[in-house]
Amino acid sequence: MDIVTKPKLSRRILDYTLLTVLALIVLAPFLIGLWTSFLPTMQIAQGNFLSTKVSFQNYIDAFTQTPIIRYLGNSLVISTATMIAQLIFCSMSAYAFVFLKFKGRKLLFTLFLATMMLPFEAEIIPNFQTVKAMGLLNTYSVMVIPFLTSAFGVFMLRQSFMQMPIELKEAADIEGLGHFQFYWKMVLPYNRIPLMTLGAYSFLGAWNQYLWPMLTTFSNDFRPVQNGLRQLQSEETFNDWGMIQATAAIVVIPTLIVLFIGQHYFKSGVNEGAVK
């Protein structure tokens, strides 16, 4: 709209003021949390919010007195394993639905789609009994195995595989590439962006799991970071807000950095995968 009417200066000032105010409101919880993470808990308890006694003490305490590093490590292992598994198994399934012709393909795909309607939250009772019977309780595997694949991932990748030019498949047939070679050498490289999007989705999805790890892990050795933070909060009899805020900051800052770097890919992927 800038092309037709040249925006007036007053209009611009208004826009920037609004943008800044809204950004401050959205960021306020971060800023408050970050600021208090530098304050001694005594000062916070007394309501001395503008205290100048800022220090890294809370961070030192968090690193030395809590297993926050262990929690982060656990989450990293679980999320990375889940991401890699979903990239492999979802892309394989999507490949079958797009490039393989077999009896019952439509029915199977409908079945896959149907699983998207079934919330995992409503299946925790039998799933808990299953992993318990498998002897998986309180391991990394229990938080990875149920999420090795995802119907959403298959659906998303199928959409982008279908948009590949048919000439690619024809060229592969002429070159005599088998299915595994075509999948590995052409389909996967061609769909880098949707694969990266699925990677980000599955990683974040695993990172943000809460209910399932809470049911299936009982020790700090395997507890992921979401449940670890809950554990710390419940252990703190004395409300050590300074240190709690420091642990929150330690968890959120790496995610924010990754997000800002990856935003370009994520954004384009979200719009591709969802609705154009």
């Binding site: 943008l19 809204l22 950004a23 959205v26 960021l27 919880p29 971060f30 408050i32 949390g33 208090t36 916070i44 308890a45 309501g47 919010f49 990172w207 943000n208 809460y210 970071v225 979401q226 449940n227 933070l229 809950r230 909060q233 409300n239 807000w241 709690i244 805020q245 642990t247 929150a248 968890v251 959120v252 995610t255 924010l256 990754v258 997000l259 800002f260 935003q263």
Partner: peptide
């Protein structure tokens, strides 16, 4: 501004809970 507005995407459930529990805290909260 676009980056800042999308920032809460990087916040997981327990971090959000900590931030807001402090804001809503009855005695010492923001």
């Amino acid at each position: 501004f676009r980056t800042l507005f999308s920032a809460t995407m990087g916040v997981s459930v327990s971090v959000a809970a900590i931030f807001w529990l402090f804001i809503f805290n009855p005695s010492t909260g923001f």
